[in-house]
Simulated scan of single mutants.
Amino acid sequence: MPHKDPFRPSRAGSAPFSSARRVERRWVPAGGIFVRGTEPSAGLRGKVKLLKPNITEAKSERCSGEDAAVTLSHKNLQSRWQKYFLLCVNYFFYGETVADYFGTFVQRREQLQFLIRYHRFISFALYLAGFCMFVLSLVKKHYRLQFYMFAWTHVTLLITVTQSHLVIQNLFEGMIWFLVPISSVICNDIAAYIFGFFFGRTPLIKLSPKKTWEGFIGGGFSTVLFGFVFSYFLAQHQYFVCPVEYNSETNRFVTECEPSELFQLKKYSVPLLLQAVLGWETVNMYPFQMHSIALSTFASLIGPFGGFFASGFKRAFKIKDFADTIPGHGGIMDRFDCQYLMATFVHVYITSFIRGPNPSKVLKQLLVLQPEQQLNVYRTLKSHLVEKGILQPSLRG
C-alpha cells in the first residue's frame, strides 16, 4: 500500500507551500516521513529542518547515554584499583610493623617465616601487578579520567595511610610521643582562634582570610607553654613513657619498664636573666620537657600550614568541607588537617635524636641467622668483651 503524501495539496485546492516548484517524483525518507523529490520547496525545507534536529538530538542523547555508561563502568573499575592499591600499601606498612615488633613470635612459626623474610619483595610484586593491570585497563577517550584517579589514589595513600603508619610507630615508642604532639596541635588551633578573635587585626595568608598574625603568634607561645607543662605531668607515669612491647610468653602487650634518662628528674641551672625574675638558681625537670619545646614549636609554626594546605585544596575543588561526619565541623580530615606533617616530624625526630641501637631488634635479627653464623657472632662478641675487660680472660677458649 503506497504511503500517503502528507504534502499533497488538499481537495480544496489550497497548497501548503508558497512555492509551486515541481520536483522529481520519487520517494525520499526524511525524519520518519516520506517526501517526494530531491529538492523540496522552501516550506518543505523548513519542515525537514525542524525534523533533523530532533534526529540529531536523539542520536546525541543516545551517544551521551552510552558515554555516561562507559564512564560509570570505568569509574567502578578505578574504584576497584583504588581498593587494591590501598590493600597493597596497608600490607606493606603493617607487615613492617609485624616484622619489627612481633619478630620473635613470627619466627616460631615456619609458615610465616617466608612472608617476613621476603615481605618487601612480595609487597613490591603486588604493587607492580596492580600497576601493570592499570596500564592494561587504559581506554581511549578516558585516559585523563583514569590518570586523574591514579594520581588521586597515590596522593591519598601518601597523606593518610603513611601518616597512620607513622602514628603507630610513634605509639610503640611510648604514649607520650603521641599525646604531646597531637595535644600541642589542638592547643595551637584553639589558642590561635582565641587570640585572633580578640586581638586579630593583621591578615596572615590569603588562603585563610580569618587567620591573623596576632592569632598565629599568640597561639605559638601558648602552645610551647602548654607542651612544657603537659609533658611534666605525663613523664611522671610509667604507662605513658614506657615503649609498647609484645610479650611472646604472655601473648600480650606490656608497658612496664625502667624509665629511660629522658623521663628521670634532673637538676638544671636557671639562666642568669631568669634568676632575677623567678628567684631560682636551679630547677628540677625532665629532659623530655626540653624535647617538648621542639615538638610544640613545630606544631605552632609548621602545623598550621597543614591547615592552609587543606584550605587551598578545598578551594581548588570548590567544596566547603571534606565530609559531614561531624555536624557543624565537617569531616574527620577537616579536624585533623593540621596533623598532616606532625606524625612525620615526630617519627623523624625520634629516629634522629632519641632512638639509639635497639638490642631487641638486634636479637631478632640474630635469631634469623644460621647456626654457624650465630656461633661466629658469639665468638666475635666474646673476644670483644674480653678485650674491653668486661669478661675475664679465664673465660676464653
Rank of each mutant, 00 (worst) to 15 (best):
M1A: 10
P2M: 10
H3P: 11
K4L: 12
D5C: 02
R8V: 02
R8K: 11
S10C: 01
R11S: 02
A12E: 04
A12V: 02
A15F: 05
R21D: 12
V23C: 13
R26H: 10
I33R: 04
F34L: 08
V35I: 14
G37F: 05
P40I: 05
P40A: 08
G43T: 04
V48M: 14
P53R: 07
A58Q: 09
D67Q: 06
V70L: 05
V70F: 03
S79E: 06
S79W: 04
Q82Y: 14
K83P: 00
L86N: 13
F93H: 14
G103S: 15
R117K: 14
H119L: 07
R120Q: 07
F121S: 01
F121H: 06
I122D: 02
G130H: 00
V135H: 04
K141F: 09
Q146L: 02
S164F: 11
S164D: 02
H165L: 08
L166N: 04
N170I: 00
L171E: 04
I176V: 07
I176K: 01
I176F: 01
I186P: 01
N188W: 07
Y193D: 03
P203Q: 06
K210V: 03
G218N: 02
L225N: 08
F226V: 06
F228R: 01
F230S: 09
N247Y: 09
T250M: 11
V254N: 03
E261P: 02
L265I: 00
K266P: 04
P271D: 00
P271Y: 01
V283T: 09
Y286S: 00
H291R: 01
I293Y: 13
T297A: 11
F298H: 05
F309Q: 12
I319D: 05
I319T: 15
G328F: 13
C338N: 14
Q339A: 03
Y340M: 11
Y340W: 04
Y340I: 10
L341P: 00
H347F: 04
Y349Q: 00
S352L: 13
G356F: 01
S360A: 07
L366N: 12
E372A: 13
E372G: 05
N376M: 06
V377L: 10
T380H: 04
L381T: 11
K382G: 00
K388V: 06
L391Q: 08
Q392A: 07
S394F: 09
L395S: 05
